[in-house]
Design a protein around this nucleic acid. Structure first.
Lengths: 127, 127
DNA sequence: CGGGGGTGTCAGTCTCTTCTGACAGGGGGT
DNA sequence: ACCCCCTGTCAGAAGAGACTGACACCCCCG
């Protein structure tokens, strides 16, 4: 179910999601089986609200899924589970991703007609 | 040249390096051929010092390399080149990486005897 | 000699993320 | 009743990162 070539924004979301030691640890912990929030908080020794935030970020990136299971005894427990993923990080993948990156995109090689000075190397032409 | 299984910190550095739209764009631009800083700054329409910072980050992650080439006419131009990379992002890779992550690491499943309360959910036990 | 292009670096903002403590609840055992 | 374990959310402090303008210097061409 993994997307072979995610959109630029998609890839970016996944990357920012993984770019954190805490979140990597969460993924690793979750890879060994599903757990619920408080339990995981104890395992990783981190604040629950904090863990919550990280989990949401991971979920937004589609790396984990959380379901609120209401046990037969009525107590609610939110179990988180790892979504198996496998994406290959290569220059080609990046190129493809950049193509569909949010908002405007700079040309690879263009004169950029109306574009003003980009560099800051001018001594003081205008001033 | 690609390391099959980078250390935790290594992977983390690469991930944080890629987790930026600007840096992705830089990689994409650099994938089409080497360029020097000012040139690239014009292409991507960004400030040179800013681009510089991003390039350094990418270089620190080992994704690009920069060489200061002194042309025959004496002018110095710093060319940046993309280092071909290919790393697979999977739960297993993350597990392996977390194992060798900097500093302390939380156990996957331990009672943590002397560990105090982690969550902040207590109503007001102490107060 | 005055542009014009290039590199390198710095101090300062400014915005986003991370992190904490506290609060709101829901439900169950003793 | 009290105590325990769980979820969900929030305001605000603290920190890291992104970004800017200006400055230092180099060399060549007219």
């Amino acid at each position: 179910m993994d997307q072979a070539s995610p959109s630029g924004d998609e890839l970016l979301r996944v990357l920012t999601a993984m770019a954190s030691p805490h979140r990597l640890r969460i993924i690793a912990a979750l890879a060994e089986g599903r757990t619920y929030v408080s339990q995981l908080a104890r395992q990783l020794q981190m604040n629950r609200p904090l863990l919550y935030m990280h989990l949401q970020r991971l979920e937004a990136a589609g790396l984990v899924t959380g379901v609120l299971e209401t046990a037969r005894d009525g107590s609610s427990v939110k179990y988180f589970e790892l979504v198996p993923f496998a994406l290959e990080l290569t220059p080609e993948a990046v190129i493809a991703a950049v193509r569909s990156l949010g908002a405007e995109q700079a040309e690879t090689d263009g004169p950029a007609p109306g574009a003003p000075e980009t560099g800051g190397s001018r001594r003081d032409t205008s001033k």
